[in-house]
Computed example of a mutant assay.
Amino acid sequence: MAKITYIQTDGTSTIVDVKDGDSVMRGAKLNGVPGIVAECGGGASCGTCHVYVDKDNTRPLSTMHAVEDELLYCTASPRLDNSRLSCQIPVSDDVDGLVVHVPEKQI
């Protein structure tokens, strides 16, 4: 289990325990974190689970696949260098302490 911190645009943060094997998106949805819409349920087909990985992150994240890369060009909030789809970040002990910032809007 890993602790993942979700920071909203107003600075409020929610820290949740996410089971190994779940995604950062699933952890948000199961714990009622606002701002993660996840319309497609984690299928990497909508881009509504967009997050900004904290710039100080040192945890190893999964490699971005071409589908995720393409969807990030269609997100409601601007794509930045640290943009990821939270459904494409698997949770394991390696990402314990990961901090992500929820964009202003998803749709």
Results as ranks from 00 to 15, higher is better:
Arg79Gln: 12
Thr58Pro: 03
Val33Ala: 08
Gly32Thr: 06
Arg59Ala: 09
Gly43Phe: 11
Asp56Ser: 12
Gln106Asp: 03
Cys87Lys: 01
Arg79Cys: 09
Thr5Cys: 10
Val53Thr: 00
Met25Tyr: 09
Val100Phe: 07
Ile4Asp: 02
Ile15Asn: 13
Ser83Glu: 06
Tyr6Ile: 14
Ile107Asn: 08
Pro34Gln: 11
Leu80Met: 15
Ser45Val: 11
Ala2Gly: 03
Asp96Tyr: 04
Arg26Gly: 12
Val100His: 02
Pro34Tyr: 09
Ala2Lys: 07
Val16Ser: 11
Arg84Trp: 06
Gly11Trp: 12
Gly27Leu: 11
Thr9Cys: 11
Tyr6His: 11
Met25Leu: 10
Ile7Arg: 15
Tyr6Val: 13
Ala2Cys: 05
Met64Pro: 04
Val102Gln: 08
Ala2Arg: 04
Gly42Tyr: 02
Ser45Gln: 13
Tyr6Ser: 10
Pro60Cys: 02
Val16His: 09
Tyr6Met: 12
Leu72Gln: 01
Met64Gln: 08
Gly47Pro: 03
Gln88Ser: 02
Met1Tyr: 11
Tyr52Phe: 13
Thr14Gln: 15
Asn57Leu: 06
Asp96Ile: 04
Ala38Asp: 03
Val91Ile: 03
Tyr6Glu: 13
Gln88Trp: 02
Ser83Lys: 06
Cys46Asp: 09
His50Ala: 04
Asp54Thr: 05
Cys87Thr: 01
Glu39His: 06
Ser77Asp: 03
Thr75Val: 07
Met1Ser: 14
Glu70Ala: 13
Cys74Asn: 09
Glu70Trp: 11
Met64Arg: 11
Val24Leu: 08
Ser13Gly: 12
Met64Ala: 03
Glu70Thr: 10
Val67Arg: 14
Ile107Val: 09
Ile89Asp: 05
Lys105Arg: 15
Ile36Pro: 09
Val33Trp: 05
Ala76Gly: 05
Asp17Ser: 15
Lys55Ala: 14
Tyr52Gly: 04
Thr12Arg: 15
Cys49Gln: 06
Gly47Val: 03
Val91Trp: 01
Ala66Val: 08
Gln8Glu: 15
Leu30His: 13
Asp94Tyr: 00
Gln106Arg: 08
Cys49Ala: 04
Ser92Gln: 08
Thr5Ile: 15
Thr63Gln: 14
Asp69Arg: 12
Asp10Ile: 12
Cys46Gly: 00
Pro60Gln: 05
Val37Gln: 12
Ala28Gln: 07
Asp94Ser: 10
Leu85Glu: 01
Met64Val: 13
Gly21Arg: 10
Asp96Arg: 03
Leu98Arg: 05
Gly97Phe: 03
Gly32Trp: 06
Gly21Ser: 04
Ala66Trp: 12
Ile7Trp: 08
Asp10Met: 12
Ser77Gly: 04
Asp20Ala: 15
Gln8Tyr: 04
Lys55Asn: 10
Ala76Glu: 05
Leu61His: 01
Ile36Phe: 07
Val33Gly: 00
Pro78Tyr: 12
Gln88Thr: 07
Gly47His: 04
Leu85Ser: 06
Val16Thr: 10
Ile15Tyr: 02
Gln106Val: 05
Ser83Pro: 00
Pro60Arg: 00
Leu30Thr: 09
Asp96Phe: 08
Ser92Tyr: 01
Gly21Pro: 02
Pro90Tyr: 08
Arg59His: 10
Thr48Cys: 05
Ala44Arg: 11
Arg84Glu: 07
Leu98Ser: 07
Val53Phe: 02
Asp93Thr: 11
Ser86Arg: 07
Asp56Trp: 01
